[in-house]
Amino acid sequence: MAAAIEIKDLSVVFRARRSSVAALQQLSLSVAEGTVFGFLGPNGAGKTTTMHVLLGFIEFTAGSASIFGVDVRESIARRRIGYLPEHPETYPFLTGRELLMMAGRLFGMKRGALRARVGELLREVDLEDSADRRIGTYSRGMMQRIGLAQALINDPDLVILDEPTGGLDPLGRMKVREIIAKLRAAGKTVFFSSHELSEVELVCDHLAIVSRGRVVAQGRATELVSQGESLEKYFLRVIQHEPAGRVG
């Protein structure tokens, strides 16, 4: 299977005035197409930094990263990506429909096809009735759903989700799981990070655990986690065995 994401020996060093911090240290990762990949780690491990490198927000110091074979530094690499950030803030003065139309226009989608796609997504995330209200009036859950909808506007082949179920009630989390399952069924690749290990367990095929800027465990979920052991226990075991020490 071809790789949707290929990361080799990726290093990212942030330089401050008097010190430098190695956010990622020779991180290597491969995400096959058509899989749901869980990217786990404690706070500050480098999950969001990795995602930001993939999305071209920050430059890496060494190594390589590509999406569907295209270097992440090319803007064309983002044509096939959809992204939902950890705290999906958006423009409060836009309506939900206007936000999705804007997102689609940025992908160069034609007006007719875009309108149909917007309608479809609004139904999918249950925001049809609130589509013409300003986003500033939306609840936390509605913001998350509209953020997810804008991430899917271009029918991306790779969906990157940063804490997609954060702050959602059980119904909202179920909705997100359903959407991820639909994406998998459609052959899309989903790459997401989450602290909700129970959610990860339910949806992921593959996972990687990152700690202190490097991958400490990677593989199929069923292979990594022993029979009878929960993902949470496995996660804690792996993290606690990591040698202590200051990075950078």
């Binding site: 930001h52 999305l55 071209g56 927000f57 803007s75 064309i76 983002r78 044509r79 990506i81 959809g82 992204y83 939902l84 950030p85 705290h87 999906p88 803030e89 958006t90 423009y91 997102a103 940025l106 992908f107 160069g108 953020g147 804008q150 991430a151 271009n154 990157i160």
Partner: peptide
Amino acid sequence: AKRTIYPLLAKPVT
């Protein structure tokens, strides 16, 4: 400040 720059630059927008 509102972090809307991230979903914006995640699209093919330079």
